[in-house]
C-alpha cells in the first residue's frame, strides 16, 4: 500500500548524487552547530557580564530560554508533519513528526532541568507548582506519552494516523506554557518575551537582567543556536536515522516474504 503511494523507503530512495549533497550539507550544518554551541557558551559564560543580583547562575538563562523555543520549533515540526500526513498519507511526514517529538522532548527537558537548577539558588527551591512550571511539566509528559503510545500500536497506518492527530493536539500544551504566565496573576515565573495580560508584578518583568555588557549579543547568538541550529540539525539526523530504520524494516519484510 505504501509503495503505491510512492513513499516506500526502498522505492523512494534518492539518487546517489542528491544523497551525497544532503550528506555534505548535513555535515556542514553539524559542524556549524558544534561551533555555534561552543561560541554560544563562550558568549554566555565568558563574554556576557555577571548579573549582580543572581550571580553566575543567571547565565543558565542563555540555555534555558532558547532551548524552550527550540523545543517549540521541534514540536511545531511535529504539527506540520501530522497535518501533512493526514492530508497526503505520505510516510515522510510521519517521520518528520516523530523526529520533531523526540528532539522536542530533549530540548524541553533541557529547559525544564536548567530552570529547576536556576530556581534552587534564586527561589530557594528546585521546584514549585507554579502554573507555568506545571504546564511545562505537563507538556513534557504529554510528548513522552506520544512516544510510548505510538510504540504500543502495531498497525503502521493506525500508528501514523494516531501519532499525527496526537502530535497536533499535543501542541496545545506548548501554547499553554506560553499563554499561562500572561493570563494567570499568581504565577511567579516571569514573562521575559512578549506581552503580558495579567496584573502580576512578578510576571511583568520580575526577571530583570541587571547584567553588564554582552547580554544582548549572548542571548541573540544562543537563540540562533538553540532555536534553529540545534533543533534543525538534530531533526535532520533523526529523520535520516528513521529513514535507515524504515529501510532495514522494509528489507526484513522483503527477506521474510521471499
Amino acid at each position: 500500500m505504501e509503495a503505491a503511494r510512492g513513499a516506500h523507503p526502498l522505492s523512494a530512495e534518492m539518487p546517489a548524487s542528491q544523497a551525497r549533497t544532503g550528506t555534505i550539507a548535513l555535515t556542514v550544518l553539524t559542524i556549524l552547530t558544534i561551533f555555534g554551541v561552543i561560541f554560544g557558551l563562550y558568549m554566555g559564560l565568558v563574554r556576557a557580564g555577571t548579573d549582580i543580583d543572581q550571580g553566575s547562575v543567571q547565565r543558565i538563562f542563555y540555555i534555558h530560554m532558547p532551548s524552550f523555543f527550540g523545543a517549540m520549533l521541534a514540536f511545531g515540526a511535529a504539527v506540520v508533519g501530522g497535518i501533512m500526513y493526514l492530508r497526503t498519507r505520505q510516510h515522510k511526514w510521519d517521520t518528520l513528526s516523530l523526529a520533531g517529538v523526540e528532539i522536542g522532548i530533549a530540548l524541553a527537558l533541557v529547559n525544564l532541568v536548567t530552570g529547576a537548577i536556576w530556581a534552587r539558588p534564586i527561589w530557594n527551591t528546585w521546584w514549585n507548582w507554579d502554573p507555568r512550571l506545571t504546564a511545562d511539566a505537563i507538556m513534557v509528559l504529554t510528548y513522552a506519552a506520544y512516544l510510548m503510545l505510538r510504540s504500543g500500536i502495531d498497525n503502521p497506518d493506525t500508528r501514523r494516523r494516531f501519532a499525527a492527530v496526537y502530535g497536533i493536539i499535543a501542541f496545545t500544551s506548548v501554547l499553554m506554557v506560553l499563554i499561562i504566565p500572561r493570563i494567570i496573576p499568581t504565577t511567579i515565573h516571569p514573562v521575559v518575551i512578549g506581552p503580558v495580560f495579567t496584573s502580576s508584578e512578578l510576571a511583568q518583568g520580575g526577571f530583570e537582567l541587571q547584567a553588564t555588557a554582552g547580554v544582548g549579543a549572548a542571548l541573540g547568538i544562543n537563540f540562533i543556536v538553540w532555536m534553529f541550529l540545534i533543533p534543525i540539525t538534530l531533526l535532520w539526523h533523526r529523520i535520516r536515522l528513521q529513514n535507515l530504520a524504515d529501510r532495514v524494516e522494509a528489507m526484513k519484510t522483503e527477506a521474510l516474504s521471499s
Binding site: 557558551l41 543572581q54 547565565r59 543558565i60 534555558h64 530533549a106 536548567t114 537548577i117 538534530l234
Partner: peptide
Amino acid sequence: ITPETTDYLYLGVAATAIVLGLLVFSM
C-alpha cells in the same frame, strides 16, 4: 552582595550536556 552561584551554573551546563549527549549517543 552578589550570591556565589557558580556551582549551579556548572550543574546546569552539565545537565544540558548530559541530556543532549544521551540523545546523540542513543541516535
